[in-house]
Design a binder for these strands. Sequence first.
DNA 1: AGGCAGGTTCTTA
DNA 2: TAAGAACCTGCC
Length: 281
Amino acid sequence: MYNIHISDDFDLKKIAESGQCFRFNECTPAAKDGESFPLYSVAAKDRHLLIEDKAEGNLSLDCTQSEYEEFWRDYFDLDLSYKDVRARIDPESDPYLYGASEFGKGIRILRQDPWEMLISFIISQRKNIPAIKASIEKLCVKAGDEIFEDERCGKIYSFPTPERLAALPLEELTACSLGYRDKYVHQAALDVASGAVDLEAFKKLDDEALMNELLKLFGVGVKVANCEILFGYHRLNAFPRDVWINRVLEQHYSGGFNFKAYDPYNGIMQQYLFFYGRENA
DNA sequence: AGGCAGGTTCTTA
DNA sequence: TAAGAACCTGCC
């Protein structure tokens, strides 16, 4: 058990619902204790963390201080002040974004694993968030290892490695409700497991080259590639355009969104716009 | 019961 | 090169 205090923007509920992560959930409170604090379960690759949100930035983590320093601090991107990034938004020149950022205050862009994000966003196409989560959970149960168990959040499995996923026959993937995306996931797993695609080496590429490499993957188009760049490679200027963002841009930015003003953090602005647009639909 | 959901690929002009 | 159709599945 390790307690921390965070003074920067940090809202677990909003992060969990922001659509960037699919194995980050609020635990259903145990029937008995009614007065306990909200509890969140976070699974990332082969790690798991329980977080008790004691309000006012006080958090209780079920890990050691060294695990926090070595992994979770970075995972939550705590070296960047999102408050400072928000301060760039001028309410006068962009009142809509300002409103969205006030509404989404507390969202952060997690530093997630490129492999897990690639598969997650390939699956995400034409699916809603509950359906994405259900498919990923089935994949983890089928090809991951049990890494944690607790009565409050159930059994938690690691995300399948490329090798384990590549070893699954197509029918096993289909059984995870992947639909027509089953062959995309299968091919991506084969590509990465074989070494034909080296996601680790992609970190050295510049944004444009990274995009080009990702677009070569079967089942990866511009939108999924941008999600991978933003969430898997943590390049905060990437700006994925999905139906929600397009709606917002059409309705509120006919004159064009001012990307220059927010460089290199346009991806964070995208998160505010997405969260705001979706919650108010 | 038909339409649609955080797109992409395949097919046609 | 650029529209339009097809695609799995689950949930209105």
